[in-house]
Design a protein around this nucleic acid. Structure first.
Lengths: 113, 113
DNA sequence: ATAATGCTTAGCCATGTCGCTAACTATCGC
DNA sequence: GCGATAGTTAGCGACATGGCTAAGCATTAT
């Protein structure tokens, strides 16, 4: 139990930055070139490049270069590990709450007797 | 549209550290004292304290002090914004994939004629 | 009252992050 | 070829992060 998820840190870290999240939602509409992505952010190209490489290392986007143009696209299944972890946690956390509920109910029942 | 989620950065950042995730799963079983949490990590108390304050600022745990003992507990609903965001993204991303599918199908259909 | 326990604060160090500019490379359009 | 365009690399500065030690404080146990 307690799986090891080596890439969760990369994934969550990539998602922790608002600029990167906005790039992702931008890419969700359609693939885009680096310059197109830089535009709305107001950031310089090298800065955006860095964000893109963080996203790519986290597996969230894939890029390919055609001529002088690099096109970026989302990798939809990349979010799965994060979703899975969150779901697992929620399940465990809620199970604990249920046990707590049961305990409280028991105490109340005993008191009522 | 495109909600603003001010705390998503804090949340994802808190989740991006393996030590903090392990503290969370530890707390999922039952509330614990600071020293109890420090034990398994092999880290010093001040270091653990810092992690705990990051978790608390992200709203993932709540702590209370009784005498000299501080007890930490998870805040189950704290994961919701992260889950919601992930779900929204997946929905958008998949919608795009569906449109892409439709487009490809159309092209194939036209070619077949 | 004193000692042990549990936490907290202050501060140090190494490293990582996020922005920038400047300069460089590689295409594309003419 | 030459200039404009698109991206890349190198390196800087300010600040955040994650670890530590040392010292302090408050509470509990003896």
């Amino acid at each position: 139990m307690a799986k090891h998820y080596p890439d969760l840190s990369l994934l969550f870290h990539a998602l922790a930055d608002p600029t990167r999240r906005s790039i992702l939602t931008r890419l969700a509409e359609r693939p885009a070139r680096v310059t197109d992505l830089a535009g709305p952010t107001g950031l310089r190209l090298p800065t955006v490049m860095r964000h893109l490489s963080v996203l790519e290392e986290a597996g969230l986007i894939s890029t390919s270069k055609d001529g002088r143009i690099r096109t970026c696209a989302i990798v939809p299944e990349a979010l799965d590990p994060a979703r899975t972890w969150l779901d697992e946690q929620r399940a465990i956390w809620e199970a604990r709450l249920d046990r707590l509920d049961a305990f409280v109910m028991n105490v109340m029942k005993e008191r009522a007797e």
